[in-house]
Design a binder for these strands. Structure first.
Ligand SMILES: [Mn+2]
Ligand SMILES: [Mn+2]
Ligand SMILES: [Zn+2]
Ligand SMILES: [Zn+2]
Lengths: 152, 152
DNA sequence: TACTATATTGAGAATCATTTACAATATGAT
DNA sequence: ATCATATTGTAAATGATTCTCAATATAGTA
């Protein structure tokens, strides 16, 4: 049924690994969430539904999901790695407000041509792109709410 | 003399902080290195020249250098934050080979127009951009050494 | 130059996210 | 149903970074 489950099962098979119950719980929860998450948040959400899971297993499973191409590293905040599933969520740009923590996401496509050209010049074969922009969001940028007024 | 020392001193003054000997050692070493470094590497290098330094002070000083705009976060490898000084090294793209670890750097300028447009649409005020591309470098990409041959 | 109010330092303890060891258990194939 | 392995939960270990605190350095002032 779920495409992601097939992908995971195939990946596990290929590696001689087993599609266990804890791994199912983790996989399903990852795809029910539509935000960035860290290992403990993921664990807590699953834990609220079943006890058949441990934090260690969550930590052990995340690398498998990354390898399987189902999850990608999203950012790092408060000293913890955060992830997000890939599901109609191809690579995108992250815009993070340093004031309120707001997270915006935009398309990465418009940057591909310029990146591809550089890659070609370098003879570098890109596999994974991470682009994040820190700054101030609309709400947190005082100058943006009114007109322009470049105070120092 | 050194421009960066003036910048640091001014930053410290403004914050009511002092330009101490350990901070001088750290600052100088940071600008004598032309690679990415983590806190302990920086500490070891200074330690090989003098004993008047501690790892704790290195950890305490890095945030000051970041705030002063003299150093920027470069990447994270092996679970450690890595930094680099800014000195004729404006923001650039990092190309990291997942096979040999080679690190290439290219200009970020060609991407600015596209980014600026998105920023404007979002009403987001960018302050810091981090762009890294993981993949295979020239030497580690078998197909690249000969002609094109898109094997699966 | 001496004095003084603070900021800073080094050492080591404390944190805390992530890993790991290990004995008990689940899985998938036969 | 059996069996060889992979996996799990628990608890301990690891390791980078931060913090505590008493001793010291710094920079301004007299
Ligand atoms: Mn995202
Ligand atoms: Mn760099
Ligand atoms: Zn904001
Ligand atoms: Zn390489």
């Amino acid at each position: 049924m779920e495409e992601y489950a097939d992908i995971f099962r195939k990946y596990l098979d290929k590696q001689g690994l087993k599609f266990t119950q804890p791994r199912r719980y983790i996989l399903d929860e990852v795809f029910q969430m539509h935000t960035h998450f860290n290992a403990e948040e993921l664990y807590d959400r699953i834990r609220s539904k079943t006890n058949e899971i441990s934090l260690a297993t969550v930590y052990r499973t995340i690398p498998l999901l990354l390898e399987a191409g189902l999850v990608q590293r999203a950012d790092r905040s408060e000293g913890r790695e955060r992830y997000e599933h890939i599901f109609g969520h191809p690579k995108h740009i992250h815009w993070v407000c340093r004031n309120c923590g707001a997270l915006l996401e935009t398309d990465l496509n418009t940057l591909y041509p310029a990146l591809a050209k550089q890659a070609k010049d370098l003879k570098f074969k890109p596999e994974d792109i991470e682009l994040s922009v820190k700054g101030l969001c609309w709400k947190c940028n005082p100058n943006e709410n009114e007109n322009q007024s470049d105070e120092k």
